[in-house]
């Protein structure tokens, strides 16, 4: 049985760069535990002899030819950016090394 703890939720939140309130941590601990419980129910099914699959449509073999398609106009590419330097054509983020 799953024993998801608040510490687990804090760790997952940290990896996802999310800040949660104490209330949210409680809420998500319960919700995530429910999901795990559901997965445990699925695991009770006998799958002996059934190969593991990574996808529900394993027969889709879509590969495309190596043909260029139009890209976005630079102003459109940057349109949703919270911060950008339109002249240099760059997205801007707070300095990440220092």
């Amino acid at each position: 049985m799953s024993r998801l703890t608040i510490a687990d939720v804090e760790r997952i939140a940290a990896l996802a760069h999310l800040e949660l309130t104490g209330e949210e941590k409680q809420l998500f601990t319960g919700q995530l535990a429910d999901i795990l419980t559901y997965a445990e129910q699925l695991q009770q099914i006998d799958t002996t002899g059934v190969p593991a699959t990574a996808h529900v449509h394993p027969d889709l073999r879509a590969e495309r030819p190596d043909e260029p398609a139009p890209s976005l106009a630079p102003e459109d590419a940057l349109a949703n950016a919270p911060d950008a330097d339109a002249e240099a054509g760059l997205f801007k983020v707070p300095r990440v090394i220092g």
Partner: peptide, 8 residues
């Protein structure tokens, strides 16, 4: 000094 530019 304060920002990093990103080119995709």
């Amino acid at each position: 000094a304060i920002k990093t530019g990103v080119d995709f």
